[in-house]
Design a protein around this nucleic acid. Structure first.
Length: 115
DNA sequence: CAAGTGACGTAGA
DNA sequence: GTCTACGCCACTT
């Protein structure tokens, strides 16, 4: 059995709240959890979603800071893009989502200040 | 405990 | 727009 992963669980709980048609970034999720520099960890956590969780967590609504799909595997990219478009999230030619328009919880995301 | 590993982010070229 | 180089951090080995 996997060891306890508290941060992982917090990530899952938060990502589950992203509404249909909206997206968030890894950095945004990390910041909202009080760890503005743990974006990589957010990605790793979602990467490990498997079995039942993958069907309940809207992992496809999480993108990188450029509004693009981070994973390289073509199959995976196609799936994520499909799931997004299915709920009305359109992508530009370069394959990027307009975050200004589709970002979830802009207010909270505002405190993404780099510093 | 030390080293390795990324669904990351930013700055710079 | 693309690409690299680094820093960062939770997790794994």
């Amino acid at each position: 059995m996997p060891a306890s992963r508290p941060f992982h669980d917090e990530i899952v709980r938060l990502v589950r709240r992203i509404p249909r048609g909206k997206v968030a970034t890894y950095g945004q999720i990390a910041a909202m959890l009080g760890r503005p520099r743990a974006a990589r960890a957010v990605g790793s956590a979602l990467r490990k979603l498997g079995g039942p969780l993958a069907r309940v967590v809207p992992w496809h609504r999480v993108l990188n800071s450029a509004g693009r799909i981070s994973r390289r595997d073509r199959e995976f990219m196609d799936l994520q893009r499909e799931l997004l478009e299915r709920e009305g999230v359109r992508m530009r030619r370069g394959g990027a989502v307009d975050l200004e328009r589709a970002r979830w919880n802009r207010a909270a995301a505002k405190r993404l200040s780099t510093r």
